[in-house]
């Protein structure tokens, strides 16, 4: 796929813009986190499109953002686990 530019994005209807970005983000995330790729891509797609274009242009920034998403997921799962164990204890 050719790199996604702001003008390409602007030419597409809003509902297709996230799809276009997602199509490019997903393989990059799948390469490092195959089992979480769908979830992480969804989380990142909630970021503003301008910021997402920056991420697609900067592998380092994208890597940091992916690791942030993984950390958020892990913290959430830890909260869920501790919440379940505390409710089962009563």
């Amino acid at each position: 796929q050719e790199p996604l530019t702001a003008s390409m994005l602007a030419a597409a209807p809003p509902q297709e813009q996230k799809q276009m970005i997602g199509e490019r983000l997903y393989p990059l995330i799948h390469a490092t986190h195959p089992s979480l790729a769908g979830k992480i891509t969804g989380m990142l797609l909630e970021i503003d499109n301008t910021e997402l274009l920056l991420l697609l242009e900067s592998p380092d920034s994208l890597h940091c953002k992916i690791e942030e998403a993984v950390a958020v997921l892990q913290a959430h799962q830890a909260t869920e686990t501790s919440h379940k164990s505390s409710t089962t204890a009563f």
Binding site: Q19, G22, E23, L25, Y26, P27, H30, P34, A37, G38, K39, T41, G42, M43, L44, L45, E46, I47, D48, E51, L54, L55, S58, D60, S61, C64, K65, E68, A69, V72, L73, H76
Partner: peptide
Amino acid sequence: APVVKSKLSVKAPEFYPSGYNQNFNQ
């Protein structure tokens, strides 16, 4: 590198590209 500030939510729906099954589930 550009600094991107935004809050990530676990409630976000999962995203799969079109043609997902053919390309990623071999």
